[in-house]
Every structure is written in C-alpha cells, then in structure tokens.
Write a protein that binds this DNA or RNA. Structure first.
Lengths: 150, 150
DNA sequence: TGAATATAGCATCGGACCGGTACGATTTCA
DNA sequence: TGAAATCGTACCGGTCCGATGCTATATTCA
C-alpha cells in the first residue's frame, strides 16, 4: 500500500489551484467544478488544511480559500501529514503512536534498517514542494520537473 | 497510506533470515518461531516469493526455503511488488492497470508532476536491497546503514 | 432586516482491502 | 506406509478510506 490516498490527490490539486491564482479568493465549488472533483470531499480536505494553517478560509458569500503559506515552503510531507496524518512506513517506527507494540520477537532484525528507509522517504517528501507541482500542463512542466528531480 | 503492509514486513524479515543462513534450507516454521511471526501468514508470503522466483521451496520432510537470488540484487521494489503487487503512488499513474480511468477533468494539472514523484520513489526503492537489511542488530548495522544512505 | 452564499463541524454509511484462519492436496523422507 | 512440510484455495472479521448528509455559523448583498 505504498500509495497516496485520494484525499491527498484532491488536496494537491486544490493547493496548486490556489497557488496559481495568487491571493485571489476562490470558493471550494469553483475549484471542484474546474477539476471535476466531488465538492463535499474537496471541502473536507480544505477544512483540514485550514485547521493546520496551510490555507486561510473566508466565510460567507464571496468567501472561499486562500493559500496561507508559500508554495516553495509547503512540502509534500507537510501536505500528506495535514490530510492523512503522519506517515509511518511500518507500524513499529513509532510504537508509542497507536499504543500497539510490535509483537515480533525482540530484537526485530530489520527495525534499524526500516527506520533508515523511513528517513530516506521522509527526506524525499520534504524535498518536494507544492511549487514543484506547478499548475502547468503542456510543455512548460520542465522547470518544475527539474526542481523535483534535484 | 504511505506505508508498507505487514506482509512486506514479514517478507523482509524472512528474506533477511534466509540471506543470513546462506544456502542452508530453513523451514517456514523455524523462521516464524524465531521471530514471533504467525506461521500461516509467513507461509502465504513465502509462497508468493516462491512464485516470483525470489526464493526456492523444497517440499517434504526436511524441506524449507532457500534464497534464490543474491541479496545485493534483490531490491526493495522487487520485494514489494512480489508481495503486494506493483506500487502505484496514485491510481492514475497507470490508468490501464485497474481499468478505472481517472475521472478528474482533463488535463489533470498534477499528472506529470505526480508521475515524476512516482519515479523518484521507485528509484529510491530500487537503490535499497535486501543486503542493506543485514541481519544484524547491535552496533554492526553501520555498514548496512551506509549502503542504504548512499 | 432577510435571503443567499459559503465554510465549520460532526455523524453516518458502504465498500475495499489487509490481517488472520482453516482445510485439503501434494510431495518428500525416514 | 506414515510423518513432515509445502502448495493452493477459500473464507471471515476489522479497519479505514471514500463518500454523503445535516446543522450551525459567518458574511455579503438587496
């Protein structure tokens, strides 16, 4: 199950949309319609991003959302954590999180190595920012691809 | 859900165990007991690894399993694919896999970038091999950690 | 002041998939 | 021939994602 959830997809698209329009206020409905996403789902995601402070919400008529952090500083790791909760490669990387201890015989032979891989994954996710997911499609995606590849 | 399944954990531990004992035949029961894993689960995993040719099974009394590939050439990516199926960061990276097409409005603004991230993840998983998960715990894990960090 | 718009919060439901179990068949060795 | 061990398949339960609905709150505008 090494995959992103659909929530993260929606969040990524929405945040890219917000990054693209700058400081203009955009309603969830507008974003949903433009990308063919289910509105309630998108709203759930935006609520979470609002709670974590990554987007700012403006209520009422003519309300909507504005990106509250700079795209360059908004890492994929932060986005995933905001939407899905913290990333755990395996359950026992942080046994104290869910209380359930690793039941494997101690010492678990792969614990250290798994932890190392976990860190590598986190590093990768922290190198990638929302700015890399530039809201461009046709050919201009090369500059963003370069940043991601770095 | 950026995490490995428990199957992958079991597979990793078992393969490390096999790598550690060299060409000696080890039964699934022996591996399970030594690491406190549920035997049937481990057998399910070993069956899959046998079907993909990564371990060789010897039936009958005194039977068991032997690693069929060199630990240095057995990548984490291959192991995950053998146990869980192919890795998909998002559903639409290979829309033809499960038939279900991406329902988002085209052109999906993040498709290209997501695909790039997907490749980076695959690269990471391909750099890590079973040999990096050396079957050592106390302090000697540094040589393997070095290889992983590379 | 009232209606319309839009987000906030919570609760619920269905389905997919992982984790775990069970049973019988097959093969090998003593 | 019987014991040991793998092979194959089918099944069940729990968890969590995906999705929906309703109510409350805040803002704008006529």
């Amino acid at each position: 199950m090494l995959s992103l959830t659909r929530k993260t997809e929606y969040a990524l698209i929405a945040v890219c949309h917000l990054a693209h329009v700058g400081q203009k206020v955009v309603s969830a409905r507008e974003i949903a319609e433009q990308h063919g996403m289910p509105l309630p789902l998108l709203m759930n995601v935006l609520k979470k991003l609002n709670r974590t402070g990554h987007v700012r919400s403006i209520r009422g008529a003519r309300g909507g959302y504005v990106l509250a952090v700079s795209p360059e500083e908004f890492t994929l790791d932060a986005l995933i954590e905001a939407v899905e909760g913290p990333v755990h490669l395996v359950r026992c990387t942080n046994a104290d999180i869910n209380g359930r201890k690793c039941t494997l015989a101690n010492p678990c032979p792969i614990r250290k190595s798994v932890r190392k891989v976990h860190e590598l994954l986190r590093e990768l996710l922290n190198r990638i920012t929302v700015a890399d997911f530039a809201y461009v499609e046709p050919e201009a995606a090369q500059s963003s691809a370069k940043a991601v590849a770095q």
